[in-house]
Design a protein around this nucleic acid. Sequence first.
DNA 1: ACCTGAACACCGTTCAAGT
DNA 2: ACCTGAACACCGTTCAAGT
Lengths: 218, 218
Amino acid sequence: MAECQDPLRENAPPSPVEAVPLSRASITDAAIDFIEDHGLDRLSMRALATELGCGTMSLYSHVRNRDDLVAAIVGELLERSGILAVTASEFTGWQQLITASLHAYRDLAVDYPGSFELLALAPYDVAPVVEHLERLVVALRRAGVTGDRAYEVLGALDAYATGFLMVWARAQAGRKESDERASSSLRDLRTLEVFDQGLRVFIEGFELEFARNEPAAD
Amino acid sequence: MAECQDPLRENAPPSPVEAVPLSRASITDAAIDFIEDHGLDRLSMRALATELGCGTMSLYSHVRNRDDLVAAIVGELLERSGILAVTASEFTGWQQLITASLHAYRDLAVDYPGSFELLALAPYDVAPVVEHLERLVVALRRAGVTGDRAYEVLGALDAYATGFLMVWARAQAGRKESDERASSSLRDLRTLEVFDQGLRVFIEGFELEFARNEPAAD
DNA sequence: ACCTGAACACCGTTCAAGT
DNA sequence: ACCTGAACACCGTTCAAGT
């Protein structure tokens, strides 16, 4: 008795899901839910285990340590966003590819404001992200940008999106505590429009630069 | 005996400065040094007290809690950067004002890579920052930008700088552990040039926008 | 006012022991 | 293989007691 799926009812906190068997995936899903519900700063191995109705150390059978759990969360969020599929489909130019990618990134901040910070500050090492970047570089090279400069341009645009959305997500997550839920959605849409506008302006700046550097190519 | 200024020599760790009397300022300075030496994640009230050669709770006589210490650090870094003085001097246009401000911001990341994150993620509430922003808004309004749009433009440029420099500072701080100190400075300068380039491109994008929206004003 | 140790309520993680 | 409680080495902070 007292297995993970069947905790003593009298002591169990009123958690929404706990019939799920423990696995790396179910732990990751629960962690994401936990962060969105209670905030990133409240996530701990102990609290997550309590939420799942199992002993703390049971988590370590499916996850190496806290960093590994964070990596799993980042991977899961990337998968859910479909951001990696963006560059796999057909777009006409680098502008559309980058815009679509960063819009998917933006939507991630909207859907997971509490967890977004983990994603924004995660190292680039994840394999599928590198692949995704590579496809964007190819698109830029088709526009006459050299490989090195392509990485710099992508880095700059990514920096803008990351900086903007991280501040936005923080404000969003912080608002959950206070009670201004009613009027918030309008303000939010407004701010996200500003995000899109800034992105457009930044891209236009690069178009200007590319046009200056490659006038004889046409 | 066993006062803060005169700890038992035999038990005292070999810390560089400990003749300084305890005060909000000395604690803040020591915290900044500690972060740059050992990393932000190693900063704790207990470790800082040990570094200062005093009991943990002595810190609480000069600092309300950890968040208050962080606020003091952010304020001190802002002061050291001279970023607030930038907009007090005379510049010709909003482009120069913003560029100078964000270059001061950039230099802060260079000088305090370990602490930069605190600054980047700190809430805007600090009074002098608001004042600084206000002066930038005035400069933009002189260029025909409405007040609301001015805040948006500043937010976008700040988002770029924050996103770029935070990633850079993290990489910088992380490199301290590894032993690639020799070849690093060249790479660093290169990356900071990319920062400046991106800033120029972004500003040019906004110039383009402003020119489009106010063609009849001239 | 300033400093302090003990204590409380938390962490992540190792270990030895269970099934 | 999966799960677990006890234990270790940490946190921030409160409290009561010292000067």
